[in-house]
């Protein structure tokens, strides 16, 4: 099964009832699959006139109680940011998939991780955070997709699935957890249902013209983000216990790094990997207590160094943090990573 299709099928099993899409490569298999399959599962697929419209349809549907999602690729995500800021401000649970490609601008259609900033730093206006789940395998893609809806409901927040062109287009066997039934969103005190003349009208809004009121709202959001940061950090640690050199990589890049880590071990070097599964909240704690053996960290990304900022913030200068990146749709080979690691391990890091 193709990665994008695995995400789409997992969404149906995760209880997705509404999908709003707009064509953009390399995510097209998601809307195409859901256009075929979601109606059969009793859901709704609707093609929007733009990514801007799609994210606003998502906003309306989720505000009316739908388990709704949208997907896009990098430039499309950029267009959606206005709506994502609105979703964060109004605390609407929903899922947004980004199958990343190279940028900036239209960039290219080959795999990249050039949206780390976009997926962790907003892009939309204002103080807000979005849970960003970053799978590295198709199995994990499917599991995270199912979990994303639960997290969205639990915290009343949009949730990102951060995939890339490589994960989206590759084939791998996936075992789906089909036991999750299609739960309807239970009545909540904020869902727009019409007031049926038995309660006061509900308003979903973000505008707060009184600065004191807006500050209170923002601080309440920050409290929520703090709770998420404490409870939902996820990462995989691989051969890190006695690592001298610790890699940090996410998504499809982490798969390549694993090969390099194994290769280095075969050559007699102790390398390990920290793979953030949540880009936000970033697993800083994995770097706060570095193994004593660790002499340096190298961040590997398919971009020019974005997660690198978070790694440096987490390492807090305890050891040098290096970077290796390929971009524009170029994919690093394990051999390149091993060579770079050997340079660092031999002290020739400049």
């Amino acid at each position: 099964m193709k990665g994008n299709e695995a995400l789409a099928l997992a969404a149906i099993h995760g209880g997705c009832t509404h999908f709003f899409g707009y064509p953009i490569t390399p995510q097209n298999e998601i809307p195409e699959f859901l256009a075929r399959e979601l109606p059969k599962a009793g859901g709704l697929f609707l093609q929007a006139e733009s990514e801007i419209a799609a994210v606003n349809m998502l906003y309306g549907a989720a505000a009316a109680g739908a388990r709704a999602m949208i997907s896009s690729s990098s430039p499309g995500l950029a267009l959606m940011q206005e709506g994502i800021s609105m979703l964060a401000a109004t605390e609407i649970p929903c899922v947004i998939v980004n199958v990343m490609r190279g940028g900036p601008g239209l960039g290219g259609i080959q795999p990249a991780q050039s949206d780390y900033f976009q997926m962790t730093r907003g892009g939309g206006n204002g103080d807000y955070r979005i849970i960003s789940l970053a799978p590295a395998t198709l199995q994990e893609s499917a599991e995270m997709m199912q979990e994303a809806f639960a997290l969205a409901q639990k915290y009343r927040t949009p949730v990102f699935i951060v995939s890339d062109g490589m994960l989206g287009q590759m084939m791998e066997p996936v075992e789906l957890n089909k036991s999750r039934s299609k739960e309807r969103v239970a009545e909540q005190p904020w869902i727009l249902t019409g007031h049926h003349n038995n309660r006061s009208p509900r308003t979903i809004k973000s505008l707060r013209l009184d600065p004191a009121e807006l500050e209170i709202h923002n601080l309440r959001l920050q409290e929520k983000y703090k709770r998420i940061s404490q409870a939902e950090v996820r990462f995989e640690a691989y051969r890190e216990v006695d690592a001298e050199l610790l890699f940090c990589a996410f998504g499809s890049t982490a798969r390549i790094v694993k090969n390099s880590v194994d290769d280095l071990h075969q050559k007699g070097y102790r390398a390990g990997l920290i793979r953030p599964q949540t880009l936000w909240p970033f697993p800083a704690l994995a770097f706060r207590s570095l193994p004593k053996s660790c002499r340096s960290v190298i961040c590997v990304e398919m971009n020019c160094g974005q997660m690198l900022d978070d790694v440096k913030l987490a390492v807090e200068g305890r050891v040098p943090v290096h970077f290796y990146g390929r971009c524009g749709g170029m994919i690093p080979e394990p051999e390149e990573l091993t060579a770079r690691a050997l340079d660092i391990l031999s002290g020739d890091s400049q």
Binding site: A53, Y59, G60, A64, L192, P201, I204, L207
Partner: peptide, 16 residues
Amino acid sequence: DMIECSHGRAPAVATG
């Protein structure tokens, strides 16, 4: 019951 929409987007929100 009402929902606030970003500038120009109300018809898309209403669609959802």
